[in-house]
Amino acid sequence: MVRSAAGDTDQDVQIKLRQDKIVLRRDFPDAWNGVLVTEDSVTVAVAGISIRISHDGSITRESSSETTWVEADGSVLKKTEFAEASISANGVDLARRTSDSIAVVGKDGIIAKAR
């Protein structure tokens, strides 16, 4: 346990050193409250949101209602309870799926239809 120099127990940091990971924790709601470092990723917890950077450069942002991925090649995917959307790394292809429709914009044109 590393104590806050200001004496504020909310800013104390708990450090766990394990053979396969390093864990930092603190009870501070306005900033980061957890960091997990493993062999292949770094994950930071901030205000109910988890952000993971993997060894290949991909990034995942997760909250209770949505997940966003930035893949190593630069493509982006987003999933919520209402829709899934993606964009290719070069920005040419876009897709959106909902429970009742699908729409795709690509170099060959636009497709939109009900499911």
Rank of each mutant, 00 (worst) to 15 (best):
G7L: 06
G7A: 09
D10S: 13
D12H: 05
V13M: 06
Q14M: 08
Q14I: 12
L17N: 10
L17D: 07
L17C: 07
L17Q: 09
Q19I: 11
Q19T: 14
D20W: 04
K21Y: 09
K21S: 15
R26H: 02
R26P: 00
D27P: 00
D27V: 08
F28E: 09
F28L: 12
P29H: 06
D30Y: 10
D30R: 10
A31R: 08
N33M: 03
V35M: 12
V35R: 01
V37S: 01
V37E: 03
S41W: 00
V42Y: 01
T43V: 04
V44P: 00
A45V: 08
A47L: 07
S50Y: 01
S50E: 13
I51Q: 11
R52N: 05
I53S: 03
S54M: 06
H55A: 15
H55E: 14
G57P: 03
S58K: 05
S58H: 03
T60V: 15
R61H: 03
R61D: 01
E62R: 13
S63R: 05
S64A: 15
E66G: 03
W69C: 06
W69M: 10
E71Q: 14
D73M: 05
G74A: 09
G74N: 09
S75D: 12
V76N: 00
L77T: 15
L77C: 08
K78M: 14
K78Q: 14
T80F: 07
E81K: 13
E81G: 11
A83D: 11
A83K: 10
E84C: 02
E84K: 08
A85D: 01
I87S: 02
V92C: 00
D93H: 11
D93C: 06
A95N: 05
R96T: 09
T98F: 01
T98W: 01
S99F: 04
D100F: 05
D100C: 05
S101M: 13
S101L: 05
S101D: 13
S101W: 05
I102S: 07
I102H: 04
I102R: 09
